[in-house]
Design a protein around this nucleic acid. Structure first.
Lengths: 123, 123
DNA sequence: CAGGATCCGACACGATACTG
DNA sequence: CAGTATCGTGTCGGATCCTG
């Protein structure tokens, strides 16, 4: 891997862009164990509105990470699933999960420290 | 790792939030081989304005990932370096870099396909 | 050189209401 | 239930100018 492959205007940025929003990685992870309906995803994830979830799923679909399958039923039933390409992202995503598990406390401590320092200067 | 550890309101989200902007991961990666001055970072990275780079560095500093060291010289000289905590992020970041190296073409192809499909419907 | 101040556009996200 | 339309808000990122 060449040094500059992580910098601006490089294809490596593609992966970062895919992770550069709140819900993409969360939804991908929620789909890791099989197809899910939107209502299931909302319960699994929690704290995401239907509109934002729909936007996220369309975004993932347009990047080839997720497929949409609609059943001809009433009431309507739709399922989303990871593509083969989407599944290849589970490994890297899990790496960040493990990182947060191991180092999350340190980040929170640093944030607190920074806030205390700012408050001391202000007061 | 429990299933819901990647979902909303969980500490795992911390790591995703750190990656959820354009320049954080790029700057961390650019600092991987040692301390750098802002002007060096701008050359290394390319395509980032001084203001945005400064914002990114302050953001990373407030999260304990980067330290700032100012030398008492004229003209002013400042160096930024990864903390020990910041260095622990290099592994997960590299995982995404490798992913992009291996699968970037597939994402681009899926995007093109999606655009062509949209154009066909519009026309 | 470092980096703050300002103005600005784009977009993600949220809440709500509505259609099939 | 699935999905869209609308509106409001916050923030990131870019461009420019200015200071020490």
């Amino acid at each position: 891997m060449e040094p500059d492959e992580y910098l601006a205007d490089c294809r490596t940025r593609l992966a970062f862009d895919l992770m550069a929003n709140t819900w993409n990685p969360v939804v991908i992870w929620a789909l890791r164990s099989g197809p899910r309906r939107p209502v299931e995803l909302r319960e699994l994830i929690g704290g995401v509105s239907g509109k934002v979830l729909a936007e996220t799923l369309r975004r993932l679909e347009s990047n080839g990470l997720v497929t949409r399958h609609a059943y001809a039923e009433a009431p309507p039933r739709v399922e989303y699933a990871l593509t083969r390409l989407g599944r290849t992202l589970l490994g890297p995503i899990e790496a960040f999960g493990r990182w947060a598990h191991a180092h999350g406390d340190e980040v929170l401590a640093a944030q607190d420290e920074h806030e205390r320092r700012a408050a001391r200067q202000a007061g």
